[in-house]
Write a protein that binds this DNA or RNA. Structure first.
Lengths: 161, 161
DNA sequence: CATAATAAATGAATATAATTCGGATTATCT
DNA sequence: AGATAATCCGAATTATATTCATTTATTATG
């Protein structure tokens, strides 16, 4: 079951999410101090947020250049039987170098974010992986020259209640 | 100093990064078991990866819908004095709802990823924030209808050595 | 090639933190 | 109001992080 809104999340849950979004390795006792609560109570809330899949993953952001990933590209694609059939998107999603696959409004069908070592490896990826997806009709590749900002931090709103 | 490549990272560092990328809350002892090393040695390596800024951040991925963020958009922008002056990008980067700002090759200048509650709040953001950036000449907004995949997991390569 | 210098790993001791759970408290529903 | 469920607390236990002196391995250099 997918959570559709923040109706179940009170201001304490949102505070936990804000703190953990900024630092997922924050200790439970530190969390508890920030929230002025007992560690056990905070832990229980965190577990519930995990169960409810409000928390999707604890992850480490790594400097891509540090592991040799110097190329970032956005690829717009058109696919045959574009709507209704989600197989194209599903196939794209299977590719590890593909970080994002979005179905978009407008003339193109998909917007895909890809990260590789360099342009040669992007070409390689296109030859080996994209070309196998036969429903792809056309693609337009946009190379990123420089990334000024890149983060997934959500602006977590205050709860009404 | 910015790390440019993985020349300093051996296969153990890369293994640490792979494990921590998948789960940043993995315990140090568990890491050590996986790597068949002493916890103290692993800890030292992790601290170094942090110092070297190979590890940028430990973060929690949150289901955006769970906190009421139901709209994702990509905005292509043209700016005056496009190259050379980075102020437009810097101003865009300051906006919390802006998750990504990329300088791209091609006719447009910037590609911006924005996440808001809904289309009304995107409009609001445009009126209040984007409109203040006077160097923006034109924008083209692409609304995401559905996100099939969204993750920043890097494909961490093997080291040559 | 030897050896000094540097870096990394180990293991044990200590300090912190996570986790559990019975009982108290608070919120919710009718 | 009274019952039910949810949340919270605090102490005990278990597990983990952290430190550091020593050993081992790697690297640089005469």
């Amino acid at each position: 079951m997918i959570i559709e809104n923040n109706i179940n999340l009170d201001h304490i849950d949102l505070a936990i999410l804000r703190l953990m979004q900024d630092n997922s390795r924050i200790s439970n006792v530190h969390l508890a101090k920030e929230l002025e609560m007992a560690p056990s109570a905070v832990l229980e809330r965190v577990k519930k947020l995990e169960q409810k899949e409000v928390i999707v993953q604890y992850t480490t952001r790594i400097n891509p250049a540090a592991v040799g990933l110097k190329l970032l590209a956005f690829i717009s694609m058109k696919a045959s039987h574009s709507l209704g059939c989600t197989t194209t998107a599903t196939e794209l999603a299977k590719i590890a170098e593909v970080q994002e696959v979005h179905i978009i409004a407008g003339e193109d069908c998909y917007l895909v974010k890809v990260r590789t070592a360099d342009s040669a490896s992007l070409m390689e990826l296109m030859r080996t992986s994209f070309s196998k997806i036969t429903t792809i009709v056309s693609i337009r590749t946009t190379i990123v020259l420089e990334t000024v900002k890149e983060q997934q931090q959500l602006v977590i709103p205050e709860n009404k209640k």
